[in-house]
Design a protein around this nucleic acid. Sequence first.
DNA 1: GGCGCCATAAACACCC
DNA 2: TGGGTGTTTATGGCGC
Length: 676
Amino acid sequence: MMQESGTETKSNGSAIQNGSGGSNHLLECGGLREGRSNGETPAVDIGAADLAHAQQQQQQALQVARQLLLQQQQQQQVSGLKSPKRNDKQPALQVPVSVAMMTPQVITPQQMQQILQQQVLSPQQLQVLLQQQQALMLQQQQLQEFYKKQQEQLQLQLLQQQHAGKQPKEQQQVATQQLAFQQQLLQMQQLQQQHLLSLQRQGLLTIQPGQPALPLQPLAQGMIPTELQQLWKEVTSAHTAEETTGNNHSSLDLTTTCVSSSAPSKTSLIMNPHASTNGQLSVHTPKRESLSHEEHPHSHPLYGHGVCKWPGCEAVCEDFQSFLKHLNSEHALDDRSTAQCRVQMQVVQQLELQLAKDKERLQAMMTHLHVKSTEPKAAPQPLNLVSSVTLSKSASEASPQSLPHTPTTPTAPLTPVTQGPSVITTTSMHTVGPIRRRYSDKYNVPISSDIAQNQEFYKNAEVRPPFTYASLIRQAILESPEKQLTLNEIYNWFTRMFAYFRRNAATWKNAVRHNLSLHKCFVRVENVKGAVWTVDEVEFQKRRPQKISGNPSLIKNMQSSHAYCTPLNAALQASMAENSIPLYTTASMGNPTLGNLASAIREELNGAMEHTNSNESDSSPGRSPMQAVHPVHVKEEPLDPEEAEGPLSLVTTANHSPDFDHDRDYEDEPVNEDME
DNA sequence: GGCGCCATAAACACCC
DNA sequence: TGGGTGTTTATGGCGC
């Protein structure tokens, strides 16, 4: 019990982020402030006066709290250990942590030193303290709920006043109410300080002087009406959502509890820290909307083109006044509106989470590509290396800007990515032209690494892998422990690795059989368990120079635009569907995620980099075509033996068979040659 | 328009 | 007989 409050306090941020936290409103608010106290950009545009006022209030509160702390230090040494212990389940170690998380910055180093100098508590004393803390936490919660309730009402009043054009007089009332709330807050802080003091006195508190205060400070600063108002705007600024969508998210548990408990907890859903802790979308956009709203009293985030933009409403309002009436009547603070807000919050949270994920992924991609692009071919490919580096840099700069737009611009989903390469680097697009990715394995793009990197993507998104059947079959065989697979095992590999091959089985299975028979590199071997298929590396090596050497145009011929565009578009569509459809409708396109977008872009980047290097082959007469087609991001693979020996070296490659893993990825078997 | 590459479809044969 | 497997041929799209 004591542990619950303590651990909730400790983990309020994570609990909320996981969407499975409890209904501790105090903690939610604390979580909200937690993100901002860590230096993140404030999510709201708090007026300077409000801010100063709130800070002043808080300083006063803190001063009182300090005094109380000193007094309580003396008082509770006498009376603080009366309650009998009842529950010894909580490890004592958890107490300092939880308390530390909720400790305000009022603890001076001197006080801390005093605390540290005090005696070690007995288990009984610890239990007593835990129970005291629990009781205080309950009191705090009650106060917090009341405070939130008042804040909520105040918030609504503010909103209504803004929309109705009410002015100073009522604002004074608001200020008065605000002051009263701040006093309540102060009282709550005092209670918390008392509890804190008891813990400090018992030496349980081990905070550091500079340790940030989490729950208390948030209460003091995080709930001023202006910010609440802004948060409200933030929640209501998005335009489309469905309640049914929100119900699909487990993370609703947190706020569902709050909402069901009626008014006092409604604010807590607004306080969901996700909106402010994840990504910058919710940070900036509502701010702008708020400004525009204030500057243009007849513009409202929920009103546009004569239609109420409340999610799921779309009621026609002839003018702004009617809209305000409609807003106040149809979207008053009730369970329904709260639920809609909750859903919208979930929408925003999901988008932000996904955005954060993909940002991170994108950064990793860029880092990866940048590093790889500078590693192996720096000396022999100065010109194209520059292109590659430029690509990486440009992409890393451009993509984060283009990506975030995709969730918010579902009406033009393909724009950011279809134009992505041109944004990344126009030079690459000039030289690359249509990116054909399917046959990248021929250009020494390790199919194994590509599949490994995009494994989850391929498994989840019904996107055609950008490799030929032959390459995929070969990869399947090579991935097997014995380097041999039965046809059925090959089938299974396809279906297991690629969601795309879970449909139209007859078609692609026929193609697999066709390729197995067609390509000499696939050797059928009678085995104990029947016929198995193996890969003849010699055939690969023999075929490769024939295909690639001599005529660079052959290399380009192996590129097929539709082959790449198909999976790319599919990925984009899947991503856009994820961004726009599932969150707002019940439609689903399988289970692709926004990560598809990043994957698609990565594909595109890889393709662009391939072409960058394949093009440089054309401009590097001194190098063999095989060298030319080496993408810059090829892994630590040593130079292909054929590269060293020249494109016409056919036989000696067989001696390098142990190293063929990546070489195998270089080429594909020309059908017609195999049939000869 | 021809060529090469590839995917797709289909026919056919063989085997269990 | 039906399904799986394997082979072969035909066709079309695409880029050069």
